[in-house]
């Protein structure tokens, strides 16, 4: 499967160090929060305080630490200047978050609203169980991307790994490159859009031709992210609905699960 080079996302240029945390910054200003080896509780508390002051926050020295920027409210505007570990932006409640390098497992898991952008790659289960908002990964995303998704959009400019979309309920997973095996396995609802190759469709999935209106809606979203391209040939994966009911007696499907 072709990987995707997220361009200069991996190259971090040092930001201008505008007012440091705790210097009385206010609305419209930018504050810096350093992570390093400090307790995450302290780091997140500093982030929340800066957000409450109405500042934009640049988070530095991230060291791929876990649980950065969890459960942030609407209006929060954060940039992580390095890579982040598990659950960055988890339970996001309206914040705009950018990760300038890579993200670990469970990026934006259970997010209800807001926008999370990763300039590099994302690990397993990006957007797991998310309810709404937009998750945008410029590189590849790992296995189980959008697992149990309940709403919102996940856009992956690169490829997604094994079992992406597993048991998703609603929302869209839009993949500009390839989807690995078991794509859209056991979907309840929701849609998985793939512009490249599909390794293999998952159990009880169906590949359908999207209609023009649906394609326009996806391309509009992509254009707004600067990656629109109307020449793409989309395949849309939806639920085969054979596993929805115990009584469907489709032995082949049943034995595969």
């Amino acid at each position: 499967m072709a990987g995707h080079d997220p361009g200069d996302g991996g190259d971090v240029t040092a930001p201008a160090h505008s007012p440091a945390a705790g210097t009385g910054a206010g609305a419209g200003t930018e504050e810096i929060v350093e992570v390093g080896h400090r307790p995450i509780r302290e780091v997140n508390a500093d982030i929340r305080k800066a957000v409450a002051r109405g500042s934009r926050v640049r988070v530095q020295d991230t060291l791929s630490r876990h649980n950065l920027g969890v459960a942030l409210p609407e209006g929060a505007d954060l940039v992580f200047e390095g890579s982040v570990g598990y659950y960055c932006g988890g339970l996001n409640n309206g914040a705009t978050i950018r990760v300038e390098r890579n993200a670990g497992w469970g990026l934006g898991e259970a997010m209800a609203s807001g926008v999370i952008t990763v300039d590099g790659y994302a690990g397993m289960a990006a957007g797991a169980s998310m309810l709404g908002g937009l998750l945008h990964v410029r590189g590849d995303a790992g296995p189980r991307t959008g697992v149990a998704q309940k709403g919102g959009d996940i856009v992956v400019e690169g490829s997604v790994g094994f079992l992406s979309g597993f048991m998703a309920h609603a929302g869209r997973i839009i993949v500009l490159a390839d989807a690995a095996d078991a794509a859209g396995d056991s979907l309840w609802g929701g849609e998985m859009w793939v512009a490249g190759n599909i390794g293999s469709p998952g159990v009880d999935s169906r590949i359908v031709e999207p209609d023009a209106e649906e394609v326009a809606s996806v391309e509009d979203l992509l254009s707004s992210l600067g990656v629109g391209d109307v020449s793409r040939r989309w395949k849309k994966i939806v639920s085969g609905q054979k596993l929805w009911h115990f009584e469907s007696r489709d032995a082949q499907a049943w034995l595969m699960i």
């Binding site: 995450i40 649980n67 570990g85 598990y86 659950y87 469970g106 189980r144």
Partner: peptide, 26 residues
């Protein structure tokens, strides 16, 4: 006929669970 998933979507083993617990506490 709703048959739910058994594995959590975003953690697998005990090490991940540890991180998950921290996320919930946060």
């Amino acid at each position: 006929d709703q048959r739910s998933t058994v594995r959590h979507p975003d953690f697998l083993g005990a090490d991940d669970l540890r991180v998950k617990i921290e996320e919930l506490r946060e």
